[in-house]
């Protein structure tokens, strides 16, 4: 197992290098450049003071490019960027004078907070209800849960978010519609938790239904297997048969789904964070995209890629833990 994990970790290196190159190539060929964004032509209106002496000249553009290192040949830019990356340095933001690490460091915790809790809730609810659905197939509970899961799967996240805001913030006034905490007062956990409820709930409701469907389907496949019947025939308690024999064997597809969600813990949800004005990774990505803040964008992409690769590895290793038949050699 250890050998396998080391081999997979080593394999990640060329994959990440390839991603870094593609990432850089995309940046080079993206429309627009950060200097255009920085030198907003309309700001010269007053600067001209009515006598038209605005200075957004090519000289200024060139000077800004030199300052940002954008005037060097692209292979040199790439090698420099990669070299810094190997030292854990994603470079400095084009837009704000701070390291990309600081941008990520600021945004990662808010994203982790809501996504970890949402993942936990959606797993508990999704897997739990999926098991009950399978065990009580074609019961009213099964139909009701299926209806709800299809309802939430087909409802776009942004719509659910707006609906939640409309009900719980605007109509009932129970929860704040946006933000991370109440600004201007002494921060408190209780206050912060109020802000967390809606985005977390929306993320959880978005994740639970598919887990529910996967679990139900996987469980249905397993509980009709002869060894489950044998378990019942041997007089084992129903709960033991379901939990120890059926569920464990049904876990593989569920793990695959969960593994696919792990990167979201870090990369965040652009739309949900935007709607709830949640200062996380999703919002950082969006602002970096619109601001042509390529160092931030590339840092976020590299980080997302790394987490995705690690998540896949974790999922593969987890398979062996739940199903001894799976061997990774």
């Amino acid at each position: 197992m250890a050998k396998y994990i080391i081999r997979r970790l080593l394999l990640m290196i060329p994959v990440l290098l390839g991603i870094s190159f593609l990432n850089f190539a995309l940046y080079l060929n993206a429309p627009g450049d950060p200097v255009s964004i920085m030198l907003n032509p309309l700001l010269l209106e007053e600067a001209g003071g009515g006598v038209g002496q605005g200075r957004a000249t090519q000289d200024m553009i060139d000077a800004a490019k030199e300052r940002l290192g954008l005037n060097k040949p692209w292979p040199i830019q790439y090698v420099e960027w990669l070299g810094n990356l190997l030292h854990g340095d994603f470079g400095d933001s084009f837009v704000n004078p701070e390291p990309v690490n600081a941008v990520i460091g600021r945004a990662i915790w808010p994203t982790l907070q809501i996504n970890l809790i949402a993942l936990f809730l959606s797993t508990i609810v999704g897997v739990g209800l999926g098991i009950i659905q399978a065990v009580r197939q074609y019961s009213w509970f099964d139909y009701a849960a299926s209806f709800l899961s299809f309802f939430y799967i087909s409802m776009p996240g942004f719509f659910l978010a707006l609906l939640m805001i409309y009900i719980f913030s605007i109509q009932l006034g129970w929860l704040p519609p946006a933000g991370y905490q109440t600004i201007g007062i002494e921060p408190s956990l209780g206050d912060h938790l109020r802000y967390m409820v809606l985005p977390t709930l929306v993320l959880a409701l978005g994740g639970a239904p598919s887990l529910m469907r996967y679990t139900r389907t996987a469980m249905l496949e397993v509980i009709h297997q002869p060894y489950i019947t044998t378990g019942h025939a041997k007089g084992l308690r129903r709960r033991t048969v379901i939990a120890r024999h059926a569920f464990r064997n049904a876990l593989i597809p569920v793990l695959t789904t969960l593994g696919g969600r792990l990167p979201l813990l870090i990369s965040g949800s652009v739309i949900i964070e935007q709607i709830f004005d949640w200062p996380g990774m999703g919002q950082a990505s969006l602002r970096a995209t619109f601001g042509r803040d390529y160092p931030v964008l590339m840092g976020l992409i590299m980080m997302g890629s790394l987490i995705t690769l690690v998540a896949i590895l974790i999922t593969d290793v987890a398979y062996t833990l739940v199903d001894p038949r799976v061997r990774l050699d």
């Binding site: 913030s169 605007i170 519609p177 946006a178 935007q274 004005d277």
Partner: peptide, 21 residues
């Protein structure tokens, strides 16, 4: 006593208006 300027997008700002925040 204080003034806060949110650097938020339009929708979040309008939602805050609607809830009195």
């Amino acid at each position: 006593d204080k003034i806060i300027f949110f650097q938020s997008e339009q929708e979040a700002s309008l939602n805050r208006m609607e809830t009195g925040d």
